[in-house]
Design a binder for these strands. Structure first.
Lengths: 334, 334
DNA sequence: GCCGGTCGTCGAAGCGCTTCGACACTCTCA
DNA sequence: TGAGAGTGTCGAAGCGCTTCGACGACCGGC
């Protein structure tokens, strides 16, 4: 145990070797005899040595920290975002990196700050808008970055996300297979579309294209998140389109309101109206009835983002665009 | 602008002063003439200088980073946790600190690691359990820490939280004023009680004591988060206690299910059953009908936690326990 | 007109680590 | 047997910053 903080010099003395030898044992950058390595490792654990992060960063020009830029914007579903974030942290630790959390209130300036001060080696950005103020900054930064989501002009960037267009299409396909002929997409709150958030738009486009391809009738609507608004939206939708028998919901916060509204309007799920959601599995499973859903593979996306950013950090080439294939799980609602 | 990274030496040369002078301008630890200060600041912005975080940490023994330890446990309501987290980040920036995000998967060892490596100066821990494995570690750490929430044995620690006992009591009071005589508390999922998470237990105790003090009848129940389970719980509750006319819900995820269940059971809110929630304002406002609620002042708690940890970092004495007073907002549900 | 006391600035010594070049050995193969 | 090619280890030079002690310059008081 340690009285005060243990340095590499103390470890070296304890093991009877040079400081540089200890460093090489730790980094593996030069071959060290098995015998010496053992003595050093023994000394390290005997003294309870932990390398000083600042000193290491200074000497090696690597902080072993990545920034996670996570604006928490209105209309975004926080639990979903946090699954991404959590996956990023876990994956980063696999690469021996820690995660610095940045929110939006500092704006792009915060990104510049942590990059310029060498606080972080690389950045992962979430909740990307089509026209994102952070993007131009990324292009001029020396530090590698990866976006979770796609801006309007992704050339020269590295982006990863679920293939939301395919997800929207997959839902249509599933409903078409079940024989539905008129369906609707209830999407994100309109503020999210207005902001031009890519995932919402792409789902809508994929939905619309698949509708056309399968010769179905249908419509896409934004969907707010209070019960009353959801209720009105659903009620009006059913009034306007008496033939409608399928619903795709891409809005985690509205899911339970939609089901409650259908219940109140005396429509049985799936008998009168079939419902498919695009949401994490637990939201789908927690609903009443459990929902057929395209799951949002947050863990996989987060892991992939970190893998990509680490590749870039090591100078390896990476694809500009990584789209994960949506998987549909059938449950009681269709 | 910078070809490559700018150092303090370059700033010093550009301004025609010593390196130490630049440092003192930045830190304000010695008096510098207005004239020199101006020249230095001009050079800094002309060159686009940002101090290197690693070097600074090494020399000053302060990383200007605090750790936010945020286990994302089952049954916790993530949006609420994130409001705390977000408030902590914002507040930390006010003190010129950044936030390193730690999750649970590394366990207490992760805390030891970031502290021992001097990656962080201090820690803020969230989602504290009554018998929390992290607590003994905190006691032996040199780095100051603050808990959001209370463990069973908080002596010697610094804890801050909403006064959940008072919150539970406040709900009872409100319903008592409205003339209700038999009420129930629907709390967190049972896993949260089993784990011994303080806030859930304290609300329950405050509720029970107030019940007694006001001479009301009532009961407290855990509450799961799927619609079907909530529905059954509510249905059985109403069957068992025909006189019941008030409900306190302390479970963000269940709130909308509770309202849907009441609707389905033909109970009107607030006419047949009055409902008070303990949750953030936006959840209460988004419900149908909008709910009378005790708000969870996440921003304030986060800010307070950071203030306390900064005080400790500066060696100032701080109270062991900080409890924030609950505020009740009356809306359409009572 | 000299002394003690600010005030403003400088130079240099680290902080704890990584990494480069050097060097002493030990093998191998001509 | 000796040149050449590894191995395994060491010492020292930084990395970019903070901070300490020193030291002129200037002030007011006697």
């Amino acid at each position: 145990m340690s009285g005060r903080t243990v340095t590499i010099a103390q470890v070296a003395k304890h093991a009877g070797v040079a400081v540089s030898t200890v460093s090489y044992v730790l980094s593996g950058k030069r071959t060290i005899s098995a015998d010496t390595r053992r003595r050093v490792l023994d000394s390290i654990s005997a003294l309870g040595y932990h390398p000083n992060a600042g000193a290491r960063a200074l000497a090696s020009k690597r902080s072993n920290v990545i920034a996670l830029v996570l604006p928490l914007r209105a209309g975004m579903h926080v639990p979903v975002l946090m699954r991404f974030a959590s996956a990023v942290v876990t994956a980063a630790r696999r690469f021996d990196h820690d995660v610095l959390l940045l929110t939006a209130d500092e704006g792009p300036e915060g990104i510049r700050r942590v990059a310029a001060s060498a606080l972080v080696d690389a950045l992962v950005l979430m909740d990307v808008e089509l026209d994102d103020r952070r993007v131009p900054l990324l292009r001029e930064l020396a530090e590698p970055s990866v976006l979770i989501g796609f801006p309007a002009e992704p050339a020269g960037l590295t982006c990863v996300d679920l293939d939301f267009a395919a997800a929207g299409a997959r839902c249509v396909e599933h409903l078409a297979e079940r024989g539905h002929e008129e369906i609707a997409l209830l999407g994100a709150p309109s503020v999210v579309y207005d902001r031009g958030t890519g995932f919402a738009t792409r789902t809508r486009e994929g939905f619309a294209r698949a509708l056309h391809a399968h010769g179905l009738k249908g419509v896409t609507l934004p969907c707010e998140e209070t019960f009353d608004e959801v209720y009105e939206t659903v009620r009006d939708l059913l009034l306007d389109r008496p033939g409608l028998s399928g619903l795709v919901v891409h809005n985690e916060a509205a899911v339970s309101h939609v089901l409650a509204a259908l219940r109140q309007l005396d429509r049985r799920v799936p008998h009168d109206v079939a419902v498919v959601a695009i949401c994490p599995d637990d939201v789908a499973e927690r609903a009443g009835p459990p929902l057929t859903s395209v799951l949002i593979p947050a863990e996989e996306v987060g892991r992939e983002a970190v893998r990509l950013v680490m590749d870039k950090l090591e100078g390896r080439a990476v694809p500009e665009s990584t789209l994960l294939t949506p998987l549909l799980a059938v449950r009681a609602s269709t």
